[in-house]
Design a binder for these strands. Structure first.
Lengths: 194, 194
DNA sequence: GACATCCTGGACCGATCATTCCAAGATGGA
DNA sequence: TCCATCTTGGAATGATCGGTCCAGGATGTC
């Protein structure tokens, strides 16, 4: 059972990511990770380093994967800005509806745990939140909004997006999640119409 | 050093609540709790039961304390509905600005940790979220909004309120937090004007 | 076919976890 | 004053934690 790697690194990272996402850093043990990935301790440590390194890598993976989807949702230059915003939220709604993946959001969960994360992990969380903020603000600017309006709406939209993670974990149904988004979309529509 | 209780139960509960609030259930050890409260293990266990029981009690305490303030903010029947909403958010903003108390929100943090909480704790979290939703919806109805609008706005407002906890933990400044709230207040103003 | 290299299984480590227990001491009522 | 009652300090328990280590075996190269 040795010689060359016996497992798929990408699949193992996905499994670890889902484990952290579902239960958080503190409540995920090395044994949990070996069970989830199918790897044993030696392989886990030799391939990914210690628990915190693996966690940071999973965070990066999460940010890259869904960041790409958010970018795509906002990128369609032909679509009206309001549709772009709708698509943006749809990324999160689809993720929540995806049965292969936990509720909530790894970034939001990690943000709430910042006081007990390592400095490296904290840095990644801050980075993730700022990237999202920048992404949304840039899209609003492209849609023609002045800077102050774009700043205000961007932070509101990212915050509301995070709130979907909280509410989905708290048991909100799809209709409630849509209500949360709709009020924000209405507000955006009002600003765009002005 | 014995005979009758040597400590103030209320103060001990406050200290434990702040400990859980700051670091979460999983990352709060019994030793942390003894340090924070000044009690030793025996006193802690004999007064409050096990760790989970103490946590549930702290959750209830948190919900009662801030729930009272939310109620007060929404209760002023003379104030225009928009001012009531502003006061509602101000409860959270003041809590975040309070240096004696951690950032974030014990309920939001616990909601994100639902998959690893005990059934009793999960029940309390659901209860807390529902109480808040009911509170806001009732206030909107009192302000004259029709049922569907009140439902939609209530879930949006409570979600945005939760997002303040996430964003404060993620390092957002006061101006950004105000932006988050302002967009929602504008949306509410639009609906109230209709 | 032999060897250096690398991966894997699982034992092992000290630290820390939540919880229990008991002896010692302080209390208040009789 | 004495005793039943309750609190307190701290030791002890068994489980689990993250992390290390090494022997054994598979691999690819020569």
């Amino acid at each position: 059972m040795a010689g060359r790697k016996q497992f798929d690194v990408e699949a193992a990272l996905d499994a670890a990511m889902i484990q952290f996402w579902s239960r958080g850093y503190a409540e995920t043990s090395i044994d949990d990770l070996t069970r989830a990935t199918g790897l044993n301790r030696s392989s886990l440590y030799s391939s990914f380093g210690d628990k915190n390194s693996l966690f940071v890598r999973c965070l990066q993976r999460y940010v890259a994967r869904y960041g790409k989807r958010f970018d795509e949702a906002l990128a369609n230059a032909d679509a009206p800005p309001l549709d772009a915003a709708r698509s943006f939220f749809a990324v999160t709604m689809d993720r929540i509806a995806d049965p292969d993946v936990p509720d909530g959001c790894l970034v939001v969960q990690s943000a709430m745990a910042i006081p007990v994360l390592t400095p490296k992990a904290v840095e990644r969380v801050h980075e993730a939140v700022n990237i999202q903020l920048t992404r949304v603000r840039a899209a609003l600017r492209r849609a023609g909004l002045p800077e102050t309006a774009a700043d205000e709406l961007a932070v509101h939209i990212t915050a509301v997006n995070h709130s979907l993670a909280v509410m989905s974990r708290a048991g909100a149904n799809e209709s409630q999640l849509h209500s949360i988004v709709n009020v924000t979309l209405d507000a955006l529509a009002t600003v765009l119409a002005a």
